[in-house]
Lab assay of single mutants.
Amino acid sequence: TSQSKEFDPLGPLPPGWEKRTDSNGRVYFVNHNTRITQWEDPRSQGQLNE
């Protein structure tokens, strides 16, 4: 049996976020709370300043 979700070392996405793949196979992220899409992983944002 194959799992639909692959193991992700960053852990789960924040509430309201979804990881998607476009027609070219590039991963992007959707924030359903604000209806915004972005290329950057929301889990890695904010760690750059620490």
Score class of each variant (00 low, 15 high):
E40N: 04
L10Y: 06
S23H: 02
P12Y: 04
Q45D: 05
E40M: 08
D8V: 07
Q47A: 12
G46K: 12
S4C: 12
S23W: 05
E6N: 09
I36W: 12
L10N: 15
R43N: 02
Y28N: 03
G46D: 15
N31I: 00
E18V: 10
P12N: 04
Q38R: 01
V27S: 13
D41I: 03
P14S: 05
G16H: 14
V27W: 08
V30D: 05
Q47Y: 09
P12T: 10
D8C: 10
D41N: 04
V27A: 13
N24D: 15
D8H: 04
I36N: 06
H32T: 08
N31L: 00
T21Y: 07
Q38C: 02
Q45R: 14
T21Q: 09
K19E: 11
P42V: 01
E50G: 05
Q3L: 10
H32W: 07
S44N: 02
T1F: 03
V30L: 06
P42A: 00
G16Q: 11
P12C: 08
Y28D: 04
V30A: 10
L13T: 02
D22V: 08
G11K: 03
N31E: 06
T34D: 14
P15W: 05
E40Q: 12
D22Y: 02
E50T: 11
T21N: 07
N33I: 15
G46E: 14
G16R: 06
W39L: 07
V30P: 00
E6R: 05
P9T: 08
G46N: 14
Q3D: 14
G46S: 13
S2P: 04
K5P: 05
W17H: 03
K5F: 04
S4L: 06
L48I: 15
D22N: 11
N49Q: 15
E40H: 10
D41R: 07
H32S: 13
I36D: 10
P14Y: 07
S4A: 09
E6C: 02
P42Y: 00
G16Y: 05
Q47P: 11
Q45S: 14
E6V: 03
N24A: 13
D8P: 11
P14G: 10
N49H: 08
N49R: 09
R26C: 06
D22G: 14
S4N: 14
L10H: 15
G25D: 10
I36G: 05
P12M: 06
E18K: 07
T1A: 02
K5G: 00
W17I: 11
N33D: 11
R26P: 03
R35N: 14
L48S: 12
W17R: 01
R26L: 12
T1L: 01
R26W: 07
E50W: 08
E40L: 10
L10P: 10
F29C: 01
G46M: 12
S2E: 05
Q47F: 06
S23V: 10
T37W: 00
R35K: 03
S2C: 01
T1D: 02
N49E: 04
D22E: 05
L48W: 10
R35V: 02
